[in-house]
């Protein structure tokens, strides 16, 4: 009986959180029009959310591309199909690894920072202070960050894939001796704009949306103490990672299944 009540409590509090999350989302979206008038706010956030994440994305993309080329070459060479290495590298990156790994890195780099920032602003009464100055903190502080995440994530994923292709070229063509022309021309011929690239972009937009939403909600909903902020930051990373991986499966099934 006790356990049942416990289960019920957990269920109710989860539903409550979900509800608060959606209310927050609507509130943030209602601030988008006001943001259009002040693009400076958005640009500043794109800088801190997106531009500052570029380094980690670039380095990771490079290494992932290089590993893909190594592994791919090993398998493909067994069938004498080394020339298709470019296709393999590019398809893996554009369809899967670009959006997914970028999403995971984005949650760790930008998402955790957003949660900590908003949580600390709440704990130090900065958000209450804004309210008393008749400034809606959700529209003024959260909306620009949300839009910045939404815009940055697909661009970062594209960067990741592009750098990965270059890394694959460096290892495949430069070190393993795959034909340079074959690497590019096979890729050009086989990678489909709609099937591969468009679907990958959709994934990265969805991941950006979900990760930024989770990060901002956790920050805004945290217990306003140092422990509360640290817990919220952990939750952001864990929930975002799970959300990215689960959604990736769902999206992949919808896009490529049949």
């Amino acid at each position: 009986m006790e356990q049942l009540a416990q289960l019920g409590r957990i269920g109710i509090s989860t539903l409550e959180r979900l509800g608060r999350g959606h209310v927050l989302l609507l509130h943030m979206l209602s601030g988008v029009t006001a943001l259009l008038v002040r693009p400076k706010l958005l640009i500043a956030q794109i800088h801190s959310v997106g531009v500052l994440s570029m380094l980690i994305i670039t380095v990771s993309g490079l290494f992932v591309g290089m590993v893909l080329a190594l592994q791919g070459y090993y398998i493909l060479s067994q069938f004498g199909a080394e020339e298709t290495l470019g296709v393999m590298v590019a398809a893996s990156l554009v369809r899967e690894l670009g959006p997914v790994v970028t999403g995971l890195l984005f949650a760790g780099r930008a998402g955790s920072a957003l949660t900590a920032e908003i949580g600390l602003m709440k704990a130090t009464e900065q958000l209450s202070g804004l309210e008393m100055m008749a400034i809606d903190p959700i529209k003024r502080i959260l909306t620009p960050r949300f839009m910045a995440g939404l815009i940055s994530m697909p661009l970062l994923a594209a960067l990741f894939s592009a750098i990965g292709v270059i890394g694959g070229h460096f290892v495949g063509v430069g070190l393993l001796g795959v034909d340079d022309g074959a690497y590019w021309s096979q890729m050009q011929a086989k990678i489909d704009l709609h099937e591969d690239i468009f679907n990958g972009v959709i994934k990265s937009i969805v991941f950006g949306f979900v990760c930024t939403w989770i990060a901002l909600f956790q920050g805004h909903d945290c217990v306003p103490t140092s422990e509360g902020v640290s817990r919220a930051t952990t939750r952001t990373v864990v929930h975002s990672a799970l959300a990215v991986l689960c959604l990736d499966f769902v999206l992949t099934a919808l896009m490529f299944g049949e």
Binding site: E125, Q126, G129, E131, A134
Partner: peptide, 19 residues
């Protein structure tokens, strides 16, 4: 409510400055 708050100023105990 926001309109009303325009006519109020509040000094928070903690200051609540934007950091």
């Amino acid at each position: 409510l926001y309109k009303l708050r325009m006519s109020m100023g509040m000094l928070f105990q903690s200051g609540a400055l934007l950091t």
